[in-house]
C-alpha cells in the first residue's frame, strides 16, 4: 500500500521535473519513512539523488518497502495540467499496477497511469573529496549557466580563497562571472585548496533549470578535475546532483 497527499500539487510537479533533467524513466524506492530516487543518466555522466521524508507530505502512508517504476515524461505530461491551489492525492493500485493522481480544486479530476516493470541499477557511493564548497542563490547559478551556454558547450568553475569564478570560452568570445565574498549571490565560500574544473553545459543547464522551481539556494562542491555536486536545499528532503568533469 502506498499513498500520499500534498496540499500543493505543484510541489510534486517540481519533484518530477527535477528528476526529468536526467532520466525518462525512474525507479522510486518507497518505504514507511522516505521516498527516494537515485538514478544515472543514460550516458552515465550525471546522477540525481532525491529524497523526500514523510514529513514533507501532508499525509503519507506506506506499509512495506516497495519499488515503483515510473515513466517520468508521461507523469510530467499529467502534472502540466495542474492548476493553482490544487490538492494532489496519489495512490497506487498494486494489483492493477496503476497509479492514480487525483487533483482536487474546484472539482475533482483523476488521472491514472500504468507503472513500469523496471528495476533500477544499484548506484554505489561517491568516492571523492571536495576541496571547495560554495553556497549561492539558485537564481545566480541559473543565469550563469544560461549565459555560459550562449558562448560554449562547457562551463568552468574556479575557486580561490577570495572568490568563486565561473566562465566559458567559445569561438564567439568569452564569458565570466566573479563572485567574491561581498557578493549578495554568494552566501558562503569554503576553500581548502584552490580548485578548477570544467563541466558539460548539456547536463548542468538541464539540471539547474529543472531544480530551480524546487529550491532558491544551492550548494556546489568541487575539486580539480573530479565531479561537481550540486545540493539544492528543500525542506524535509534532499535534492542532489553529481556531474562528471570534462577534461580539457
Amino acid at each position: 500500500m502506498f499513498r500520499f497527499r500534498l496540499s500543493s500539487a505543484r510541489a510534486w510537479r517540481n519533484v518530477v521535473t527535477a528528476i526529468s533533467a536526467l532520466v525518462d524513466e525512474a525507479v522510486f524506492n518507497i518505504d514507511p519513512e522516505v521516498l527516494r530516487v537515485r538514478a544515472m543518466d543514460p550516458s552515465h555522466v550525471a546522477m540525481v539523488d532525491l529524497e523526500w521524508r514523510k514529513e514533507a507530505f501532508d499525509e503519507y502512508a506506506c506499509d512495506k518497502p516497495l519499488s515503483l517504476g515510473i515513466n517520468i515524461n508521461d507523469m510530467l505530461k499529467l502534472l502540466r495540467r495542474v492548476g493553482e491551489d490544487e490538492v494532489l492525492d496519489l495512490y497506487l493500485d498494486e494489483a492493477a499496477a496503476k497509479l492514480f493522481l487525483k487533483f482536487s480544486g474546484k472539482y475533482i479530476r483523476t488521472f491514472s497511469m500504468a507503472t513500469l516493470d523496471i528495476t533500477g541499477e544499484e548506484i554505489p557511493a561517491l568516492k571523492v573529496t571536495f576541496n571547495t564548497k560554495a553556497r549561492l542563490t539558485t537564481k545566480c547559478l541559473l543565469q550563469t549557466v544560461e549565459d555560459a551556454a550562449t558562448i560554449s558547450d562547457n562551463i568552468r568553475f574556479e575557486a580561490t580563497q577570495e572568490k568563486l569564478t565561473m566562465g566559458a570560452q567559445g569561438d564567439m568570445g568569452t564569458f565570466s562571472v566573479d563572485l567574491d565574498r561581498s557578493s549578495e549571490a554568494l552566501l558562503d565560500l569554503q576553500v581548502k585548496e584552490p580548485s578548477k574544473a570544467t563541466f558539460s553545459l548539456n547536463f548542468l543547464s538541464q539540471i539547474v533549470k529543472a531544480a530551480a522551481p524546487s529550491s532558491d539556494i544551492v550548494t556546489i562542491e568541487f575539486s580539480t578535475n573530479i565531479p561537481i555536486k550540486l545540493s539544492f536545499e528543500i525542506p524535509q528532503g534532499r535534492l542532489e546532483y553529481v556531474v562528471a568533469p570534462y577534461i580539457e
Binding site: 544515472m40 546522477m47 548506484i123 554505489p124 561517491l126 571523492v128 553529481v242 568533469p245 577534461i247
Partner: peptide, 16 residues
C-alpha cells in the same frame, strides 16, 4: 570531443 574529454561517473564511484 565528448568521448575523449567527458569523464563518466563510473570512474568516481565505489566498487560494488
Amino acid at each position: 570531443r565528448l568521448f575523449l574529454h567527458q569523464r563518466r561517473m563510473g570512474d568516481f564511484l565505489e566498487k560494488i
